[in-house]
Design a protein around this nucleic acid. Sequence first.
DNA 1: GTCAAAGCTTGAGATACTGAAGCACCTGGC
DNA 2: GCCAGGTGCTTCAGTATCTCAAGCTTTGAC
Lengths: 151, 151
Amino acid sequence: MGSTATTTVPTNAELMEALAAVGAAYFQDFAAAAARHGLSSSQAKALGAVQEPVPMRALAGRLGCDASNVTGIVDRLESLGLANREAAAGDRRVKIVVITAEGREILNRIRGEMARTHQAFEAMDDEQRIALHSICAQVLPVLAGRTGGAQ
Amino acid sequence: MGSTATTTVPTNAELMEALAAVGAAYFQDFAAAAARHGLSSSQAKALGAVQEPVPMRALAGRLGCDASNVTGIVDRLESLGLANREAAAGDRRVKIVVITAEGREILNRIRGEMARTHQAFEAMDDEQRIALHSICAQVLPVLAGRTGGAQ
DNA sequence: GTCAAAGCTTGAGATACTGAAGCACCTGGC
DNA sequence: GCCAGGTGCTTCAGTATCTCAAGCTTTGAC
């Protein structure tokens, strides 16, 4: 940057407030886009988490909720034709959730229709996009609890 | 920045992915801290939205849900002693939600206990904090739908 | 073969959320 | 003053979400 001298370093509380506001607004944009396609935000979030095939148990981990909860969510995705359960080779206890072509289609449409989010991106210049992306990449492992990357 | 020449501008899809991941991780940290104090994430979110007194209807707007929903959430906050309904001067239809001292105490404790979020902040240098804060401030009005401030 | 553990489902109970209906109250026109 | 229409909140179905406990099947170690 180095644009001006006006820049004072924000406190943690200020950063937290700003991050929370942006996160909440992003989430509402996402939920609204999902609702337009008849999906709850939980269902849409689950759909986004199974772009690669994922066992039920691991999906629960990704969504941060109990495994029994995932059963119901995947039930509904399956009845909507957006995902399927497949048997895992090698362990017949495991069921793997696989997104269908229609599911991927809907997911892409939802992401494309997040109008406010896209507007927000357009309000950034290249330097800001690079900075934001790099900060997210740097911070994510810490925030998600994968401190090293080793494990 | 200006550190190196390696920086290529991320696509919207990459930015969206990064933002979603950070947002989700932040939210899980928040929900976990709230749960430690016996609050659901909806209740904690509502508590954070009433640091200033807010009418029920406006609270529904802030939370992005139906007004009838807020009735139940505030019911529970009230029965926990974390917030109160007060009559509005001048319009007896309106009920204003006011956080209690205990509510503010719990809210501060929750925010203080968001360990991963604080770790993530510590992983940033001053330049990054300034950049992130400024991007959030610039992008929030667009993302939240208050484009000009005029309307 | 037996047993502990893991993966998924089911059931009960609480919360969250929406939409429709209802009540109390305010506002503007008469 | 009075009445019609609009606004703010609550209540009432009905569904979805979520957690915990219990159950079933399968796996892996012994």
